[in-house]
């Protein structure tokens, strides 16, 4: 046996190790992925399409998109702000702040839902009835605004909600629970990236007389755009797929407060397996798109970083 390199194994060992790893990954990752699609199409195309055209499914998709549509931009704004703060400045308590940003990763999704029930639930600190009293003047004012022609429609939904400010078992609860769970994703992606880039370019731009916003949009954003995009994608994937936190606050009201993952659960528990898996394919597809985008982003960041050198 002639060994060419001292830093690798013999061909047989390599072959066995690769075989074992591929087997583990196939059984563990590829098989479940395949199972989603096989189970979804078990009863044919008609059942698959009918499950997606269902009214409850449409409502679940709408709620999911709304919740992600609110929580993802909020957490993106936070992520950029926190990354700017932590990487551009040195101050006391900086490392504590970084640990606090990671905190939601250590919190069970169920607890992420529970905290909001403790705050806003029927026996919570700010129950619906108390809030309705507090908001009464604001509700009257918004209702008055809503009567105006032209811009009134902007306020009508808000006026209705203020008169009966429901958070738990309603959309606002789903949004805040989703926001809690997806809180660290953008910041987590940006902090190491911006730390490695340093702030020489920003300092140069400021010295040359650029304003703060100008520096951010022209210098920083150009440097972090791919990392930011990936952070947003991850945040979005988790927001649309969140189950535990949302299931605690949603109340599972069909056609009203079911998100897509909750709809999958309801169908599954009703033994409508094909329909459950049909809706699950949408979420699996979202996961695959996210993974694909990750590879694309990694490809681009490698290119741009080699361009700079």
């Amino acid at each position: 046996m002639s060994q060419r390199s001292v830093t690798t194994e013999s061909a047989v060992v390599r072959f066995l190790l690769i075989g074992a790893a591929v087997l583990v990954l196939s059984l563990f990752l590829l098989l479940p992925l395949a199972a989603v699609f096989v189970e979804a199409f078990r009863k044919g195309w008609e059942v698959f399409l009918a499950s997606l055209h269902d009214e409850a499914a449409a409502s679940a998709i709408k709620v999911t998109l709304l919740a992600a549509g609110i929580s993802v931009p909020l957490n993106t704004l936070f992520g950029v702000s926190a990354a700017w703060l932590v990487t551009k400045f040195k101050f006391r308590g900086r490392s504590l702040l970084v640990s606090l940003i990671d905190l939601p990763f250590a919190v069970s999704p169920v607890i992420a839902g529970l905290v909001w029930v403790l705050l806003f639930g029927a026996r919570g600190w700010f129950p619906q009835t108390a809030m309705a009293d507090t908001f009464a003047p604001a509700a009257r004012f918004t209702a008055w605004l809503a009567q105006h022609q032209g811009f009134g429609w902007l306020f009508s939904d808000f006026a209705i909600w203020l008169a009966d400010p429901k958070i738990i078992f309603a959309l606002p609860g789903i949004v805040i629970a989703t926001t809690f769970v997806t809180f660290p994703f953008v910041a987590r992606e940006l902090i190491p990236l911006m730390e490695s880039q340093g702030s020489d370019q920003e300092e140069a731009a400021v010295t040359l007389g650029a304003s703060g916003w100008h520096v951010f949009f022209r210098v920083t954003l150009a440097n972090i755009k791919w990392g930011l995009l990936y952070g947003v994608l991850l945040c979005n994937a988790r927001a649309m797929g969140e189950f535990g936190a949302v299931s605690v606050v949603s109340g599972h009201i069909r056609g009203e407060t079911n998100t897509l993952p909750l709809h999958v659960e309801v169908l599954y528990n009703e033994y409508q397996f094909s329909a459950a898996f049909a809706c699950a394919t949408l979420l699996a597809f979202l996961a695959l798109v996210t993974l694909g985008m990750k590879s694309v982003v990694e490809h681009f960041t490698r290119h741009t970083s080699s361009d700079h050198k």
């Binding site: 479940p32 992925l33 199972a35 989603v36 189970e39 999704p109 991850l234 994937a237 649309m240 797929g241 969140e242 189950f243 535990g244 993952p261 909750l262 999958v264 659960e265 599954y268 459950a276 898996f277 699950a280 979420l283 699996a284 979202l286 996961a287 695959l288 996210t290 993974l291």
Partner: peptide, 11 residues
């Protein structure tokens, strides 16, 4: 990481 937990669960 990317697959929603409920989907992983039923699968």
């Amino acid at each position: 990481f990317a697959l929603p937990t409920a989907v992983a669960g039923i699968t």
